[in-house]
């Protein structure tokens, strides 16, 4: 009984206090909020330790059991040990692991930056392959999406300006009264892209954001009122 009711009461009281502090940020609520935020920060720090423990344990078990791909787990553990060692050494020697002359920064500059950038950049190849095979004009909605995507892509790069200028030259050649300079300055593709991003895209995103927020509020109320208790299991 107590095992269930005390956590529920703590959650309820904390939430109510924080809601009051949001609207009345003065004493005593403001101070309480500040204290709670500090506690939150400390707890957040411990979650990193928890993550580290879980990650290390998982991969050590894989190494000892020689499960498939155990070699990658070994690499991960070695990389972890090397990073922590260099980080701690840099901290003691240079007062910060991120001091530019520290050995940790060597690891950061020549390992972490290229590896992370490569991982992110390799996405482009998969996107191209996926778009080529899957982005088909199967129905009206797909056609609309394809046209919008092409317009945004072309409006996002200088190639769009170049094509627009070509269109301007063509229009000027056919209808000489059309001012080429004024036509070029319109930056048609960029303007269409800006409109697509600012109006239809923003409207759709706003709808998603409102839906997410309402969902968040509903879930928060369920937790505060003790209806949703799965976090205790």
């Amino acid at each position: 009984m107590l095992k269930r009711n005390i956590p529920l009461a703590i959650v309820f009281l904390t939430a109510v206090l924080l809601i009051i502090a949001f609207f009345i940020p003065h004493r005593p609520f403001g101070d309480l909020e500040s204290r709670f935020l500090n506690w939150y920060t400390i707890v957040l720090g411990f979650t990193m330790l928890l993550g580290l423990d879980s990650l290390t344990r998982h991969h050590l078990v894989r190494i000892f059991r020689r499960t498939e791909g155990w070699f990658y787990s070994l690499l991960l553990i070695l990389a972890l040990v090397a990073t922590v060692t260099l980080g701690l050494y840099s901290w003691f020697r240079f007062r910060s692991p991120f001091a530019l002359q520290a050995p940790f920064m060597w690891l950061y500059t020549y390992m972490i930056i290229p590896l992370q950038s490569t991982m992110f950049a390799s996405l482009a190849f998969f996107i191209v392959s996926a778009a080529y095979r899957a982005f088909r004009v199967r129905n009206f909605s797909a056609t609309l999406l394809l046209i919008a995507a092409c317009l945004v892509m072309i409006g996002n790069v200088p190639l769009g300006s170049d094509i627009w200028q070509g269109v301007g030259r063509l229009v000027h050649a056919v209808v000489p009264s059309v001012d080429f300079g004024a036509f070029s300055r319109l930056e048609g593709f960029a303007a269409v892209k800006d409109w697509l991003m600012s109006i239809p895209q923003a409207a759709a995103n706003r709808g998603i954001a409102i839906g997410l927020s309402l969902g968040g509020i509903a879930m928060s109320l369920r937790i505060i009122l003790g209806i949703e208790r799965t976090y205790m299991s």
Partner: peptide, 13 residues
């Protein structure tokens, strides 16, 4: 890169 993707999309479609 964008030009290539658009060209590929057109060819594919």
């Amino acid at each position: 890169g964008h030009g290539l993707i658009i060209a590929l999309l057109i060819i594919g479609n």
